[in-house]
């Protein structure tokens, strides 16, 4: 049974369309990322999966349970880490976990053991008696994770989990997520706007303007773009693009003040281009395609651009 089946889901806010006919499946035991710029629809999808907002159109099944009619089943099986912290800052770490346990029907010895184990696993056991407001952002994030995993969810949903984490803390987070997946088979779904974070997922869905524009493993997605990525900066990039096309037959995409070309043997093109347009070209670089190139290839926009659906 797939962990998540999303079929034909659309969602509208009063002002704009956030999701349009989204279909996708997340397999059990996968680390799956939703990658997209702000306004791409990934947070809306996250909220629908977390049963935080009601479904408007389409269907979502989580471990076979319909989020619309069996929200209760779904809620028992998911753990949710929100982008905004959900810890009560006036309570201690241990108290936060205790009340979370009570919400999920855990109590007594079982609850104490689980909380202690979670805090140990996340390296925050020595802060159990401290109020959350005295903890650093990184430590709070760990407690947040302990809170979400306390009841042993089969699916962990995380909205922008790296927000506010320094690079070392991000590495820790991913180490923990992999352990969770490898040792317990927990399915992990996260949203991110960071390309390098999405690279770490088993599979990812790239979302733009409320649609899934690509869905595969990071390697496959990059392989699809193929060749090397050549980035040319010029004062009049549109004119240059036309000239390059006329002279070499290369078609690229113009993004702001840069031209992006995807060609095999990119290193051979560099001298040819520079010799042909020595005055026009301000800078030129070559590299392997990144997820950003995948994004550009699929949407025609640069990743940072705010792309949203017309309302």
């Amino acid at each position: 049974m797939p962990a998540i089946e999303v079929a034909n889901v659309s969602y509208r806010y009063p002002q704009r369309q956030a999701l349009a006919n989204v279909d996708l499946t997340v397999n059990e035991g996968e680390i799956f990322a939703f990658l997209g710029p702000n306004g791409g629809g990934k947070t809306t999808l996250f909220r629908l999966l977390a049963t935080l907002v009601p479904l408007q159109e389409g269907s979502i099944r989580i471990f076979g349970s319909d989020v619309r009619t069996q929200a209760d089943h779904v809620r028992r099986r998911i753990g949710v880490v929100f982008q905004a912290p959900s810890l009560d800052k006036k309570l201690t770490v241990a108290e936060n976990l205790k009340y979370q346990g009570w919400l999920y029907g855990l109590s007594g010895q079982t609850l104490r053991q689980r909380s202690q184990q979670m805090l140990q696993n996340l390296g925050v056991a020595d802060r159990a008696g401290d109020r959350v407001e005295t903890l650093s952002g990184g430590l709070r994030r760990r407690v947040e994770l302990a809170k979400a995993c306390l009841h042993g969810p089969r699916l962990l949903l995380m909205d922008e989990p790296s927000t506010g984490l320094d690079p070392a803390a991000r590495i820790d987070l991913w180490q923990y997520l992999r352990q969770l997946r490898d040792r317990q088979g927990v399915t992990i779904v996260l949203t991110t706007h960071l390309l390098e974070e999405a690279e770490k997922a088993d599979r990812l869905a790239i979302m733009a303007a409320g649609k899934v524009v690509a869905l595969d493993s990071p390697d496959n997605l990059r392989a699809e773009v193929g060749g090397d990525a050549i980035t040319v900066a010029a004062a009049d990039v549109v004119a240059l693009a036309a000239e390059i096309e006329a002279k070499f037959g290369l078609r690229g995409s113009v993004l702001g003040e840069t031209l992006r070309l995807h060609e095999a043997s990119g290193h051979e093109w560099i001298p040819r281009l520079v010799e042909a347009f020595p005055n026009e070209i301000r800078s030129i670089t070559v590299g392997k395609p990144t997820l950003e190139d995948v994004f550009i290839a699929r949407t025609g926009h640069r990743f940072g651009d705010d792309v949203s659906l017309p309302s």
């Binding site: 089943h73 028992r76 099986r77 999920y104 029907g105 855990l106 053991q113 689980r114 184990q117 979670m118 140990q120 696993n121 996340l122 390296g123 995993c149 306390l150 009841h151 042993g152 969810p153 089969r154 820790d172 180490q175 923990y176 352990q179 969770l180 040792r183 317990q184 088979g185 927990v186």
Partner: peptide, 17 residues
């Protein structure tokens, strides 16, 4: 993170809460 042998005592395969 400390290298614990297990990530938690909770097995998600067990019946949900």
């Amino acid at each position: 993170l400390p290298n614990e042998p297990d990530t938690g005592v909770v097995s998600p395969a067990a019946a949900p809460v």
